[in-house]
Structures are given as structure tokens and as C-alpha cells.
Nucleic acid binder design. Structure first.
Length: 806
RNA sequence: GCCCGAGUGGUGAAAUUGGCAGACACGCUAGAUUCAGGUUCUAGUGGGAGUUUAUCCCUUAGGGGUUCAAAUCCCCUCUCGGGCACCA
């Protein structure tokens, strides 16, 4: 037999699959609903570096799962496309003058070829790229629907500005005060922005998480990001005026301990309530606060600052007069922009009160008594110094006082979220143009749906202006247009949409990617959605995954999709690290190029190696040595064919049992995405088959089928050697015979005082007494119990006997 | 600072409900085969003691606890990774 020539084999089957459209999927109604599933990968951004070894990790996992499900009689939608708008192509354009479209489509070609070299079973007829006009036409269409429902609006608030990318960013794109993409320090800039009202969906985004089979850590990140808190809004009157300052608090039970009040420097009432003699000081403070960057303002361990306004507020629960201060530790963007300060029970207030010598009154106590406090006590306890509420436990007090405030008309129950609206415009070129014009007479006007797509015009320079205008602003003959409403003079919106826009709904488009009448046909949407299994990196926890859920819920509300959630089951693949255990990067010089590995070992080996490395979810370092283990395994399988493979060969009971056990284990493991241990089991089977002189043909067929999802190329070739018709993909997945895996004898453990003393093979189903007798007569056991009294005998049926002796 | 998650041989890792720790691989050692080998095959391989056979002791980051029995459950500490950043 010739040697395992993966280059020839892989080329042959790649061409075969292409030519025969082996992976094409249709909306075949003969599949019952529960046999239609949608398995999706997070589509890649086609960067100029080509595919990274991290990409095929998730792709291989879903490919194995898809092939497995297809062989089990499922119709599986498994598509691939490209997240093709984005900054790298645009930055390259700025450097070289190459049109971002040229770079992008060239990179897509390369990516597609690389992805195909892995033999993934994508239906390539459904491929899409978010920068195609017939795709972004529908991205723009969705934006128009958001606009019509009042969920897209223009605002002029200070936003996160990246001085290197020269564009505004969403809150979700800022990490540690730095740009998520380029690590530059974020500045604050006030420019006119398109915002999406994601906050309108906060409660549903939070609540529906319970419907999802996602990693708890990802769900928790979304929970924290949405940041729901429950408390009360309380009205404080400004002494001597009719002005009311509303504060939000999660601890209304500490109202009696409020010794002062703090407004954010930007609070609208500051100007009005500040007294004459404090005016200068307050103005100076506000000027300083406004000019400080967000980072400076929120800097860790920064000493508290603030000034007294000269005004006083009246505490509604006890009519006590408390001073009103302003300080930058109160944020205008959260709650009401004003707080009641309870230094005894809030760390920040305690710090502030200590610095400015403001009174500290304890109102919560661990034991119901007053005592000296060295720091703020924020835990729940028993109320003291709180009038008629003394003695109440925190939770009860909260309810009572909130009710009391409501009865008095001085407050009410309130809920707040940390989630902010989504800053949706970017001051860059390579993105979807907004289908919006600004008319001198009519104001902001949406384009007619028939006018879509509004295509990106050609520009002379891709360079962002840096002034908050995108490069589109310079193309006057594109910018100047007529208003669709009044035909008067109008200017086009020159911002573009963020990269997240296209990825918010691509999974919908895959169900019907060539449709030019709708974003996808209803029938196809109903046939496939929601996505049953979604696999990708965890870095999108609060970005793509939150945005897409928001759009999906909106599309549900307007009747476009039929489910409330887009991705039912989500699994995150870990990172593949360099051999030194560090993140792979050019600068660290530890990058492994998948093309090189395929050239040296073949795609089957690379696929299996990445799966064998460890559990899908964890980070795993690459090891150039251990890939040989998988390579040897495949060669071992190949060499099984040097043995006579015949129908009449009797299989040993032992190997027959192992075969059926392997079917069971591999089936369960693939279903649970535990590929590393599934592969181990296949190795055990092959090691054992290799010891046989001759091999039974049915066993061989079973092995080829079990191996197929992991190593599609070699298995197609071996299937052909077995004189079978391609493709293995169309074969039925093997089923194990439960009667064959029952052990009639078992290894029983004998231990004394919990320590293993012997293992013996006994028949299945012995009674407790019989097992104990076996143990008591066991030589090694006797040695350890001699001269001692048996205090206790524990028996676990068919497993162990433990004797406790003294 | 707060909230999650993880920590098992020289290495990647495995281990239903608490029930033989280290499956499967890599590497290493020895032997066989081959003109040759990053080939193939066989045996060994957590640490220690031991008459190198029997056998015994120790071992899942560290410490304590629950239990007949703990990698697995509980508490504390340490280390690493991730998220949040004055959110009242």
C-alpha cells in the first residue's frame, strides 16, 4: 500500500466536494422541524495577515458538530461569510491609496481559500460580505426602521473619542480608559452623534438571558454591563425655594443618616441654587471638572474634591437641614445626577465627609446598638437613630420607607441601569453610510426605502478629518442633495455606521443571502432561526453579543423574525497561545501560520490536533512536538488497511465491546463538544484494532464513519478504499448495541479505612453480603484488618467495599 | 477595591452522583527492526523508601473542615487569568 500522501488526498477531495456541491443545503421540507438546526461560527474580519491558527479552532469544532448532526439525519445550516467593513483596510488605504474595497476583496479571496483548505462543510453558495452593497442595503433598511420607531436619534453629548482612530466610540469599545482597538487613551469630545436607544431594551436584554444556554461568565458580564439596580427616588426641597432635587438611592433605609447632599458639577440646578458668596468658587470648580478628561476624573484613589454651594436641602424624613455640595464623584450620567450622602454607610461619602469635616451619623448597626465606626459600614443590619423605624432590619426598612415616601408624595420606588445608549456613528469612511439627509427646512429626513442602498461614494482621500467629520464630508457633490420630502436643499449625513452594524444581523441573511426583496424570506427565517449553536471568542461578550440581541429583539417587535433571541446556545473557544504560553503576536515572534502546518502535516492533522490539545473553552499553548502524536494516529489508521480486511473475520469479544463502547462515547462526547476525549477514545480503539491480524470490514466502516467528522479528507479516501460510494458525510452515524457493552464481570475495589488494598474481578450484581465476604477473605485485606475490630462496612454495589477498623 | 473563573506528573491533559488519581498523547529511557530516519514495533516512565521482588509511604497550589471515602463539597490563604471602575 502506498504511503499516506495527504497532499494528494486533500486536493482530490476538496475538488470533489466543490464540484459535487456536497455541502449545499436547502430548505427541504421533508425534514421535520426538530431535525433542522443552525450551527454558526462568528464570521471573521478578513485581515491582511490571513488566517490565524485561532480561527480554525472554533471552525473545526462546529464542522465536527455539523457533520455529526448531518450523519444523524439533521438538515444543518452551516454558512460562512466576512465581516468586511472596518478600520484596518481603511488605514491601509490612508497609507497606500489603495481603495479599501480592493484590499478587502483581495483578503476575502485569500481567506476563502485558506478556509477551504481545512475542508469545512460550509454551504459556500450562501457566502456574504457586510461591505457588499446588496448586503448593507438591508443594514441601512434596519436602521431606517429603528429611526422610524424613534430608537435612532441624534444627540450632542460628550462621547469617547479615540485620538488615533479619529473617531467616536461606544462605551463598550473602551477598556480601562483606552481604545479597545489601538490602546490609545480616550478623550472626551462633544460631537453630534447618532445614538441607538438600546436602553429601551435593557430590561428585556437582562430578563431573557435566562432563556439562553450560554456560559455563565458571559451571561454575568452582560448582567453587570446592563447593571440593573433597585432603590428609590427621593425628593429633597432646597431650603427657602420651591426647587426640588431628586436623588436616587439603593439605600432609602439610610435616609436618616444623610448629612449632606452632592450634585454633579453638570447638574442643571447648580447655577440657580448657588449663593452669591459661593458663586466664584463653584464656577472655578465646574470649569476644572469639565475640562478634565474622563480618565482624570475617575482616576483610582484620587482624593475627593468638591465645594459647598451655600444652599441647604431639607431631608424629607426628618426635616433636617443639610448642606448641598458639588463634587465630581457624582456622575451626571447616572441616576438623577444628585445623591444624598450617608457617610456612615457609604465608602465614598465617608471619605468625602472625613476630608471636609462633615458630620457622620450611624443609622445601621450590626447589633442594634450605636458604636464607634472606623470606616463606612455598607452591610445590612438593624436600624438605629431612625425615629419610628428603629429596630427594623435593612430589607424591611427599605420597603417601609419607600412606601412611606410614596404616601407622603416625597418619593417613589425606582430602577436604574448602568447601560447607556449606543453611540452609533463613526467619523470614518469604510462603513455603511446613513440613509439620512439634513434638510434646511424639514430637519432630519430619512431616505425612502426604495432609494437603498445608499452606496459609498469614491473619495480622493480616506484620511479622517479629525474634526469630527468623516472623509465623506469633503465630497461636496455627494453631500449636497435634495430633501426627499420637500425637494429643497439638503445635506447627506456624513458619518458612517460602526463595524458592529453589519455583524448584528448577518446570521439572518445567511438563511437567504441572495434575496433582493427582503433581508431574508419569511419562510427561510422560520425554517432556520434561531441559531442553535454559536461558537466564537469570548471577547465579544458585551459588544457583538449584546448589540445583536438588541437588534434581534427589535426585529422581533416589528415582525421580521419569529424568536425573541438570536443565539440559543453559545460556546466560547479558548485562545491558542504561542509555544511559550504567551499570546501569539508578530512582536513576540511566536506566530504559527496554519498554511505552513497544513503544508507539513495536512489539514486533517491540524484539525485533529487543535481539537486534541484540550477542552474547547480553555486557552491552550501550541506545541510543535505533540502535533506528531495526531499525525502518527492518522498514519496508524491508514496502515490498518495493510491488514486483510474481510467480511468473514470474526471479531474478538473484547474488540467488539470496545467498538460499541467507542461508538457510545464518541457520540456523547461530540454532542457535548468534548472533542479531546472523543479523540482519545478513537485512539484507544485504533491501538487495539492494530493488534489484530485481520480486520472485520464492518468494524472498519464504523471506524471510518466515527473518524469522519474530525478528519474528513482521509476518511473519504479510506471510504473509497472500502469500495464505498462517496461521501461518508451521507452515511448514517453508527449506533451502538447496548447489550454488547454490558460487563458481566467488574473490577471491585477493596479498601480498609479508605485506603485501596486490592482490586478483584467479580461477577456483576453480587449482594452486599457476598461482596463483604469476598473482602473479608481477601489476603491483602486480611493483612490490614488482622487483630483489629471492624467498626463499619460500606458497600457500593458493583464498585467497592470499604472496611473501617480500629 | 468589587465581581467571576482557574490551579492535577517534565509537558498538553483525563477522571457520571464524592468511590482504583494521572486515561489518551507529547517528551524521556531501554530494546528490536531498518542502508538510513522527526520511521515502525515492544517494554518502562508521578515522587520517595525497599532485599529493586514482595511490599509500604507520600501526592491534585497551601492550610483547615465535613465524610467510611474529597481533584470533586464547605471555610481561609496564595498565585494566575478575565470583567468592572466613584453607577449612589
Amino acid at each position: 500500500m502506498e504511503e499516506y500522501n495527504f497532499k494528494v488526498i486533500e486536493k482530490k477531495w476538496r475538488e470533489f466536494w466543490d464540484k459535487n456541491k456536497t455541502f449545499k443545503v436547502t430548505e427541504d421540507l421533508s425534514f421535520p422541524e426538530e431535525k433542522r438546526i443552525y450551527v454558526l461560527d462568528m464570521f471573521p474580519y478578513p485581515s491582511g495577515n490571513g488566517l490565524h491558527v485561532g480561527h480554525p479552532e472554533g471552525y473545526t469544532a462546529t464542522d465536527i458538530f455539523t457533520r455529526f448532526k448531518r450523519m444523524n439525519g439533521f438538515n444543518v445550516l452551516h454558512p460562512m461569510g466576512f465581516d468586511a467593513f472596518g478600520l484596518p483596510a481603511e488605514n491601509y488605504a490612508i497609507q497606500t491609496g489603495t481603495h479599501p474595497a480592493d484590499t478587502t476583496y483581495k483578503n476575502i479571496e485569500k481567506f476563502r481559500e485558506q478556509i477551504k483548505s481545512f475542508g469545512f462543510c460550509y454551504d459556500w453558495d450562501r457566502e456574504l460580505a457586510t461591505c457588499d452593497a446588496d448586503y448593507y442595503k438591508w443594514t441601512q433598511w434596519i436602521f431606517l426602521q429603528l429611526f422610524k420607531k424613534g430608537l435612532a436619534y441624534e444627540d450632542n453629548v460628550p462621547i469617547n473619542w479615540c485620538p488615533k482612530c479619529l473617531t467616536g466610540l461606544a462605551n463598550e469599545e473602551v477598556k480601562d480608559g483606552k481604545c479597545d482597538r489601538c490602546d490609545s487613551l480616550i478623550e472626551r469630545k462633544k460631537i453630534k452623534q447618532w445614538m441607538l436607544k438600546i436602553t429601551a431594551y435593557a430590561e428585556r436584554l437582562l430578563d431573557d438571558l435566562k432563556l439562553l444556554d450560554w456560559n455563565d461568565s458571559i451571561k454575568l458580564m452582560q448582567v453587570n454591563w446592563i447593571g440593573k439596580s433597585e432603590g428609590a427616588e427621593v425628593d429633597f426641597t432646597v431650603e427657602g425655594t420651591k426647587n426640588i432635587i431628586k436623588v436616587y438611592t439603593t439605600r432609602p433605609d439610610t435616609l436618616f443618616g444623610a448629612t449632606y447632599m452632592v450634585l454633579a458639577p453638570e447638574h442643571p440646578l447648580v447655577e440657580e441654587i448657588t449663593t452669591q458668596e459661593k458663586r466664584n468658587e463653584v464656577r472655578k470648580y465646574i470649569d476644572k471638572a469639565v475640562n478634565e478628561s474622563d480618565l482624570q476624573r475617575t482616576e483610582l484613589n484620587k482624593e475627593k474634591t468638591g465645594v459647598f454651594t451655600g444652599a441647604y436641602a431639607i431631608n424629607p424624613v426628618n426635616n433636617v437641614k443639610i448642606p448641598i455640595w458639588i463634587s465630581d464623584y457624582v456622575l451626571i450620567s447616572y441616576g438623577t445626577g444628585a445623591i444624598m450622602a450617608v457617610p456612615a454607610h457609604d465608602t465614598r461619602d465617608f471619605e468625602f465627609a472625613t476630608k471636609f469635616k462633615l458630620p457622620i451619623i450611624q443609622v445601621v448597626s450590626k447589633d442594634g446598638k450605636k458604636y464607634e465606626m472606623k470606616e463606612a459600614e455598607i452591610e445590612d443590619g438593624i436600624a438605629i437613630n431612625s425615629g419610628q423605624f428603629d429596630g427594623l432590619k435593612t430589607a424591611e426598612f427599605k420597603n417601609k420607607i419607600t412606601q412611606w415616601l410614596e404616601n407622603q408624595g416625597k418619593g417613589k420606588k425606582a430602577i436604574n441601569y448602568k447601560l447607556r445608549d449606543w453611540v452609533f456613528s463613526r467619523q470614518r469612511y469604510w462603513g455603511e453610510p446613513f440613509p439620512i439627509v439634513h434638510c434646511e427646512k424639514c430637519g432630519v429626513v430619512a431616505l425612502d426605502e426604495k432609494a437603498l442602498p445608499l452606496t459609498l461614494p469614491e473619495v480622493e482621500s480616506y484620511k479622517p478629518t479629525g474634526t469630527g467629520d468623516s472623509p465623506l464630508a469633503l465630497i461636496t457633490d455627494w453631500v449636497n442633495t435634495v430633501c426627499p420630502k420637500c425637494n429643497g436643499k439638503a445635506k447627506r449625513e456624513t458619518n458612517t455606521m460602526p463595524q458592529w452594524a453589519g455583524s448584528c444581523w448577518y446570521y439572518i441573511r445567511f438563511t437567504d443571502s441572495k434575496n433582493d426583496r427582503a433581508l431574508a424570506d419569511n419562510k427561510n427565517i422560520e425554517y432556520w432561526l434561531p441559531v442553535d449553536l454559536y461558537v466564537g471568542g469570548a471577547e465579544h461578550a458585551v459588544l457583538h453579543l449584546l448589540y445583536a440581541r438588541f437588534w434581534h429583539k427589535f426585529l422581533y417587535d416589528i415582525g421580521v423574525v419569529n424568536t425573541v433571541e438570536p443565539f440559543m446556545k453559545l460556546r466560547n473557544q479558548g485562545m491558542i497561545l504561542g509555544e511559550n504560553g504567551e499570546k501569539m503576536s508578530k512582536s513576540r515572534g511566536n506566530v504559527i501560520n496554519p498554511d505552513d502546518v497544513i503544508d507539513e502535516h495536512g489539514a486533517d492533522t491540524l484539525r485533529m490536533y487543535e481539537m486534541f490539545l484540550g477542552p474547547l473553552a480553555v486557552d491552550k499553548p501550541w506545541n510543535t512536538q505533540s502535533i506528531y502524536g495526531v499525525r502518527r494516529f492518522l498514519e496508524k489508521v491508514w496502515r490498518l488497511f495493510e491488514k486483510p480486511i474481510e467480511e468473514r473475520v470474526e471479531i474478538s469479544d473484547e474488540n467488539d465491546k470496545l467498538l460499541h463502547k467507542t461508538i457510545k462515547i464518541v457520540t456523547e462526547k461530540i454532542d457535548n463538544l468534548e472533542f479531546n476525549t472523543a479523540i482519545s477514545q478513537l485512539m484507544i480503539l485504533v491501538n487495539s484494532m492494530q493488534k489484530e491480524e485481520k480486520i472485520n470490514i464492518d468494524s472498519m466502516k464504523t471506524l471510518v464513519k466515527l473518524l469522519h467528522p474530525f478528519a474528513p479528507f482521509i476518511t473519504e479516501e479510506l471510504w473509497e478504499k472500502l469500495k464505498q460510494k462517496p461521501s461518508v458525510l451521507f452515511e448514517k452515524w453508527p449506533v451502538f448495541d447496548p447489550s454488547k457493552i454490558i460487563d458481566d464481570s467488574l473490577t471491585i475495589v477493596f479498601s480498609v479505612n479508605g485506603k485501596l488494598r486490592d482490586t478483584v474481578i467479580l461477577t456483576k450484581g453480587l449482594s452486599d453480603e457476598e461482596l463483604i465476604n469476598h473482602a473479608l477473605n481477601n489476603e491483602k485485606v486480611i493483612k490490614h484488618i488482622e487483630g483489629k475490630t471492624i467498626v463499619k462496612k460500606i458497600v457500593v454495589k458493583d464498585k467497592l467495599v470499604n472496611l473501617v477498623v480500629k
